[in-house]
Nucleic acid binder design. Structure first.
Length: 276
DNA sequence: AGTGTATCCTGCAGGC
DNA sequence: TGCCTGCAGGATACAC
């Protein structure tokens, strides 16, 4: 999906355009992207004002009047596009359209419809928020804290990083990139990372996420920001999608390996395989 | 606790 | 040109 940097880029684009706007109407084109009842969703959202536009992990969170939240998980191919008219060149698979102040549209567009839109009251939001791990760019995420969390798990590092209950917002691209940056093998068991390794991983995670936000995220194929722009971080990827190409640190060919049904990429020299 | 597998769904690239 | 397979940024449920 859109991972943390892509969600953050979308949020920054949406914020000035959505804040203080009223949702005057909602049009559901594909009800399967709604979690929960369509009726409840429409009546819950319609007529409310958008007070804040935020992010939690990979989720875009719109705070609506009456302390309700519209939580949007973009899945693999979800987009949130703002447009004056109903249709834009970027909106190829509209699933939900929000009419704002009878003036412009917020379109949730999703080719594969793995995305999910949910309308939450305060208790449901608290529960959702609690289920997600620490924000990796917040001050609460420290190298020490990371080390302590890693010590409690035998899970391979790449799987460990993808679990949203531990860190919120890291997906396959940035997990792979951070592990390359920290010189740690994706299959290395979390608890065998030493203190220096944990410090490198902490630093690499924050660095790659920050740099990706600066570049407006990574567009492989479908991802677009709120105004339809592509994410330019793709040219800065060191490992993800580079199988067979030389490692930019040592020149060794980047390898692809598959586990947990997903591709990982690594430099076999910089990121030595765990022994045993 | 962790892993592999399947599922949701569509599109695209590559091989033949 | 068409058909087939594999692959894709995610989340979740299941069996083992």
């Amino acid at each position: 999906m859109p991972e943390l940097p892509e969600a953050e880029t979308i949020v920054r684009g949406l914020r000035p355009r959505l804040t203080e706007r009223r949702v005057s109407d909602v049009e559901i084109l594909h009800a399967d992207v709604l979690r929960g009842e369509e009726e409840a969703f429409v009546t819950g959202v319609r007529g409310r004002r958008i007070e804040e536009v935020g992010r939690r992990g990979k989720n875009v969170v719109l705070l609506l009047s009456g302390d309700r939240r519209l939580v949007i998980n973009l899945g693999m191919t979800g987009r949130l596009l703002v447009a004056d008219r109903t249709d834009t060149p970027e909106s190829t698979h509209p699933a939900v359209r929000f009419l704002l102040d009878d003036a412009c549209h917020l379109v949730f567009d999703d080719v594969r419809r793995f995305g999910a839109l949910e309308w939450l009251d305060p208790p449901a939001w608290r529960e959702r928020d609690r289920a997600l791990g620490v924000e990796p760019l917040s001050g609460r995420f420290t190298a020490k804290g990371l080390r302590a969390m890693l010590e409690r798990s035998r899970s391979p590092l790449r799987s460990w990083l993808l679990d949203q209950r531990r860190l919120a917002g890291v997906g396959n691209i940035y997990a792979v990139e951070a592990l390359w940056g920290a010189r740690l093998h994706p299959r290395l068991p979390a608890r065998s990372v030493d203190e220096a390794g944990a410090r490198r991983l902490h630093r690499a995670l924050r660095s790659v996420l920050r740099r990706a936000i600066e570049a407006g995220g990574t567009t492989i194929r479908d991802y677009r920001s709120a105004d339809g722009a592509r994410g330019e971080f793709v040219v800065e990827l060191e490992a993800y999608g580079r199988a067979g190409e030389p490692c930019r640190r040592c020149g060794t060919e980047i390898e692809r390996l598959v586990f947990s049904n997903r591709s990982a990429f690594l430099c076999p020299r910089c990121q030595p395989a765990p022994t045993g």
